[in-house]
Design a protein around this nucleic acid. Structure first.
Lengths: 260, 260
DNA sequence: GTCGGTTCTTGATGCGCGTCAAGGCCCAGC
DNA sequence: GCTGGGCCTTGACGCGCATCAAGAACCGAC
């Protein structure tokens, strides 16, 4: 029997449930890409370390609670089930990103899902009420990080709106590779923690169409794949030339990857 | 002779040039929708009032300067010229919104353009270095406002990705009407400061298609128009029922309009 | 008022992508 | 090894939107 692309890929059961809480100190020494060194201390001291497994859905507390989360390792996506049936991925979160309910519109069925095993820190800003200095630093940190998230969302809008679907896919792989992959010369390789359907939902494409596009990109030599879950961008330069917005991707994600 | 939709609508000349600087006190008494009352004082005291004319392009300083702008009245759009030719509008800014270069990805040809005559305030956070309290308040304010902008951008992504073009147009008019229009019962009316091409560029549609859709919406009775630049949403309830995301639009923009 | 330019509308046509359907690939379980 | 069930790929086909083109409505200048 053929299952033909079950709704949210069948593993709905595994998705529910809250993330497991671990002891803090296991993360206290981990480096993560936060500009201000003090920030690491603040999160380690006042935050609660958490861990999420692949495909696990993170319960983000109630509506407008003030809880914020910091992603230390792994990959998260913001997903929504458009009332009908079609799922869509609205944003991708990389290590170093923060997120909270305030950043998300009140759409039905939005949630944050782990695409890989993740380590994160939950922080309640009110826990810092005693030390104004730390609170101030946190605010400054949040301003900067939220602005970066916004710039990335705007970039994503630009990609969705102005790029052909083929360029969209190429730009997506480039972004992921710059963030999570290994750079060597002009070539970048990375794992694809998102399935084909996930990628399609993120780029607002059909999974079938995405598959066709991947085939086209491969046959043209723009990207290569190793197995199903690993991709290689052959020439970043050439890609940036073909797809102008990729320059912005490089600027936004390249430096983040370099510093992280 | 037929001009047939000239590139950025011909008025490119009028677009260039910096916004005119006016004296501050002419705005000092104006109410604007900022949650914290102190914020108004901070901007009035340390900021520089500016005014922009319809279709004027705002020069936002160099790359990563720390200047922030607060929109007091009018409507701004974030626009980008995709390297080819196609312009796109990436975001709409309403009174009470703040923006800075940090919120914008480094795409070629991005700029902020006034869709109506606008009043705004330019503020350099470093001007507040002397008063830590105000600096702290500004940070907190920025966190909140940037988060709201992000939520709106995400909502826009959701609309672009999941809605039929007809629903997209309806949702757009609803948003604009809730923000800038007059509500009475279940009906909302508003001016359309954006031309058809502008709207099309924002919704990533073709201007011709948009025109067809408007005709369809009118003949179906969902919206009505008065002249070319005024629209009326006949029944907000019915629209919210047909287009699920409109509920989120109501939540995000309805309350802002109510408080503003 | 008339005129010129812009913006909007509407028609005909073609292509891209979504959809449906059938198979192939890959991996886990036994 | 084999088998079954997700995933992924690939084909056929239809609809929706972009494109091109022409004309209508609107608006300001004079």
């Amino acid at each position: 029997m053929k299952t033909q692309r079950a709704k949210p890929s069948g593993s709905a059961v595994a998705l529910t449930g809250t993330a497991t809480v671990r002891s803090i100190d296991s993360y206290a020494s981990t480096a993560f890409p936060v500009s201000d060194g003090d920030m690491e201390v603040i999160f380690a001291t006042h935050g609660v370390a958490m861990r999420a497994r692949r495909r696990q859905r993170l319960v983000m507390g109630s509506k407008r609670s003030d809880v914020i989360y910091l992603l230390k390792t792994g990959l998260l996506v913001l997903s929504a089930i458009g009332s009908g049936d079609r799922r869509q991925l609205l944003a991708i979160l990389y290590p170093g990103d923060v997120f909270s309910m305030a950043l998300v519109p009140p759409i039905d069925g939005v949630s944050v899902v782990a695409m890989t095993d993740c380590e994160l820190v939950r922080l309640r800003p009110s826990a810092l009420d005693d030390s104004p200095r730390e609170l101030r630093e946190l605010d400054a940190f949040m301003v900067q990080r939220t602005a970066e998230l916004h710039a990335r969302s705007i970039l994503h809008i630009a990609r969705l709106a102005s790029l052909s679907s083929e360029s969209r896919v190429a730009a997506f792989i480039l972004e992921l590779a710059l963030r999570t992959g290994q750079v060597s010369n002009d070539t970048v390789a990375c794992d694809l923690p998102l399935s084909r359907s996930d990628i399609a939902d993120y780029l607002s494409l059909n999974a079938d169409t995405l598959s066709r596009i991947m085939t086209r990109l491969k046959s043209r030599g723009a990207v290569a794949t190793v197995g199903r879950s690993r991709a290689i961008v052959k020439s970043v330069k050439r890609l940036s030339k073909e797809v102008p917005i990729c320059a912005a991707t490089l600027a936004l994600h390249g430096q983040a990857a370099a510093s992280g």
